[in-house]
Amino acid sequence: MKESGLRNSCKDMKILAIETTGKYGSASVIDETGLIYSAASSEEMNHLRGMITLIDAALRAAGITKNELTHVAASVGPGSFTGIRIGVTTARIMSQMLNVPCIAVSTLEAMATGALDKAISSGALYVVPVINARRHQTYAGVYEAVFTSDYEHQSAVPVMEEKQYMIEDLLEELKCKTAEYSGAAAFFTGDGIDAYGDIIKSTMSEGSYLFADEELRYQHAESVAKIALRKAVRGETLSYNELMPEYMRLAEAEQRLRAGTLSDRIRFPAK
C-alpha cells in the first residue's frame, strides 16, 4: 500500500471484526479512535444461522452502513474448525463483495488481549489463553503484559509459541517461567479452564495461577477488533484470498495418509 493511501485510510477507519471460533459468536465494529460497538450471541454454536444478524446489529450500533466499512477482520483460529470456517468464509466474501481488504487476527492473541486488563489488575505477569482441543490437548500460547512505546497502553506480547500443547506440557513449561520471578502469576483464560481447571490447580503452585471469570473467559470480537485496528494502522492487510484459517492441525485423514496408516480395510486383501 502507498504511504499516502495508508495515511488516508488511518484518518477514517471502520473495521468489522468477526469472532466465531468458540462457543458464542460475536461481531464488532471499531473506528480509528478505538471506539467499539458490538453484538454477541447468547446461543451456543449458533454461528452460521446468527452471523449476519450479529454483523448487522454491530453496524447499526455503530451507526454506519456496510458500505462504509474500510476493512473486514476475522479471528482465524485456532478453535472449532467449523466455527473458524464460518467466520473466515464470511469475512472473505464480504471483503470480495465490498472491495475492502481483510485482516487476520490470531484467536489466541485476541483472547490474551481480552484478558489483559483484568490480568494486570490482578497482578499477574503472564496471560495464558487455553482452548480445549480434547483428550488433554490444547491450543495455547503464553503472553506477557508489556507497555507500548508511548507508555499509555499495555499489549500482550507472546513469550511462548502459539501451538498445540498437551495440557501437562504447557503447565510444565509455564512453571519454569513463573519460577524465574518470585511471585509471578499466570492468568488463565479460555474454555481450557472448564476442561482442565483441576489439572491446572493440581499442577501449578498455590498463588501462581488465576482464572478469568466466566464473563471474559470466552472469545469475543471486541478483542479481535482491537488487534485489527493496530494491524490496519500498520498496513498489515490481506486480500480475501490470503485470509486463511489457522487450524493448527492437519485433517485426521491427512495425518494418517502422511504417516502411512490410512485405513484400507475396505480394499480387497492383497494375495
Partner: peptide, 19 residues
C-alpha cells in the same frame, strides 16, 4: 456433508448481505 454445506451457505449469506 455439514462442513461442506456451511461454506456455501456462509458465502451466500455474506454476499446476499453485502450486496
Amino acid at each position: 456433508l455439514v462442513g461442506a454445506l456451511l461454506i456455501g451457505v456462509a458465502a451466500a449469506k455474506a454476499m446476499a448481505y453485502a450486496c
